[in-house]
Amino acid sequence: MSDKPARIPYYPGCTMKTKALGFERSAMDCAEVIGFEMDELKDWNCCGASYPLTKDNLMGLTAPTNILIEAERRCQKEEVDPNLLTLCVFCYNTLKRTEFALGQDKKKLETINAFLDRKYEGSVRVVHYLEYLRDVIGFDNLAKMVKTDMSKFKVAPYYGCLLLKPQKEIGLDDPEDPVILHNFLDALGCKVIDFPAQVDCCGSYLVMREPEKVSKLSYDILADANEYGAETLVTACPLCQSNLDQSQGDKVQFADLDGMPILYFTQLLAIAFGLDTKTHKLEEHHIDPLPLLKAHSGADSESK
């Protein structure tokens, strides 16, 4: 990775253009303040969302490989470092694991190239926005850009599963005892609430088949965060955001818990930078984060 922040090829994925618009817009606004540009790939397809776990998974690798090819060509043409920035944790996991699989298994790479009738040379390195902040920008430097006093925010860093696992392929942080979101929140000056359920699963796509189980898992995570004193929770995953936020509509399961707003880490970063959050879709969250944001940061609720 280069050490100078600049224009970096960016893969959004489907959710970022629909249900997680607030995530993408807040990330882009923050990138502008930090001094880099998220340069969206011109021609991209869905990555397939979940990485196929079995070894006979060639078909499932064609979609993400096509994206890596697009990124590789762009980087070669523009003579920039072959990095591909992602925000969505599902996309990140799928693309990163594909990068790993094709790097390990040349035969797989050749088969997929032959099938796609395009050539992937294997040069792209998939990077998550958080990783970029940590490794290229530096959390120390990020801290210097903070304009708002964030000390009243009691925030639980929630990692979930796919940002970290499997560690030997993703390699972002320790899957059992991660610190990257903790350190990010520290840099913002928030009160970081370390809580045991930070790496527990929210239920993921099981919401399609067993929503009650997802409600129960979400409840366990939020009850834990609440018990440790958190007022809000940050995530990098649109499915975690949706499950944890929308499950709170289950009034029976959540009878003894006050609503807890679930924010994307970039939405909180935008508040810390003192940005106008009008386009960050905060009003679309099931549990309205605006009262909390207003009370703690004096941020105005123009986005209503």
Partner: peptide, 22 residues
């Protein structure tokens, strides 16, 4: 029989992953 409400409010990756897994 999948509820329209579910399809309308779920993020894309929930639906696409669900399709792949179920």
């Amino acid at each position: 029989t999948m509820s329209r409400d579910f399809l309308a409010r779920s993020p894309q990756m929930a639906i696409i992953s669900g399709f792949r897994k179920f």
